[in-house]
């Protein structure tokens, strides 16, 4: 299967890539699927960082593939275990290919969405709106990967629904917090360009503060509020 055929299949029907996958398919498909994921995610990263210059683009293009890859790969054993506990047997090979195919599809969608994100960011959009646009774009392109992974869990079993919901919940939380740890993708205007910001608070507090700021509410609590182990450092 050449790269173009694989790309078409990943876009049109990623489930069919994983449906009959065995260990030979896994060994054969892993390199091109990884390349599609990294390439596509990096393009979205370039677009996200473009408004703050080439250095921020480079940083974002390096970090965004990590954001795509790290959460599903870290959660893979958990997804397998969830399915097992719920009485659904998912072959490891199938789960591996489904994960990589789903990520490759999201990577390709990210590449397609890059110009759509770049356009508003290049028009001097307000910073907080830019962040929300980035989060929304990432959410839209990441959903197909989650969907492909969930469909790799075969039908049947006593509690398939629980296995799928539990897996998606963990994957969603991991992705959100990994994105927060790897920020900034869209740099603050006039802020020094940095590869990573200090870890403070969590994604949910930040999104709340960001949404308030985007709506023009800049009260004293507009910054993410620290909690738990981060409380002392951020306050």
């Amino acid at each position: 299967m050449n790269a173009l055929t694989l790309t078409t299949q990943v876009l049109r029907d990623p489930d069919s890539v994983a449906a009959t996958a065995d260990r030979n398919d896994l060994a054969r498909l892993a390199p091109p699927l990884l390349a599609l994921t990294i390439g596509g995610a990096a393009m979205l990263g370039v677009a996200a960082g473009a408004s703050s210059g080439p250095l921020q683009s480079l940083f974002a293009a390096t970090k965004l593939p990590l954001l795509f890859l790290a959460p599903p790969l870290v959660a893979l054993p958990l997804v397998h275990a969830f399915a097992d506990v719920c009485g659904v047997a998912v072959p490891w090979s199938r789960l591996g290919v489904a994960t990589l195919a789903g990520l490759a599809r999201s990577g390709l969608l990210a590449a397609a969405a890059a110009p759509l994100l770049w356009l508003p960011l290049s028009l001097d959009t307000e910073y907080h709106l830019g962040v929300l646009a980035f989060v929304a774009t990432f959410g839209v392109v990441a959903l197909p990967a989650l969907s492909t992974i969930s469909r790799a869990v075969p039908l049947g079993g006593q509690q398939r629904f629980m296995a799928v919901v539990g897996s998606l919940l963990v994957l969603g939380l991991l992705t959100a917090q990994t994105g927060w740890v790897l920020r900034p993708f869209v740099a603050r205007p006039r802020a020094e360009v940095t590869f990573l910001r200090p870890v403070e608070s969590d994604i949910f507090s930040a999104l709340g503060a960001n949404t308030r700021s985007a709506a023009g509410d800049y009260r004293s609590d507009w910054q993410p509020s620290g909690s738990g182990v981060f409380r002392e450092r951020s306050e």
Partner: peptide, 8 residues
């Protein structure tokens, strides 16, 4: 992506 390749 070593976790995905463990089956090999």
């Amino acid at each position: 992506v070593w976790p995905a390749l463990l089956p090999l």
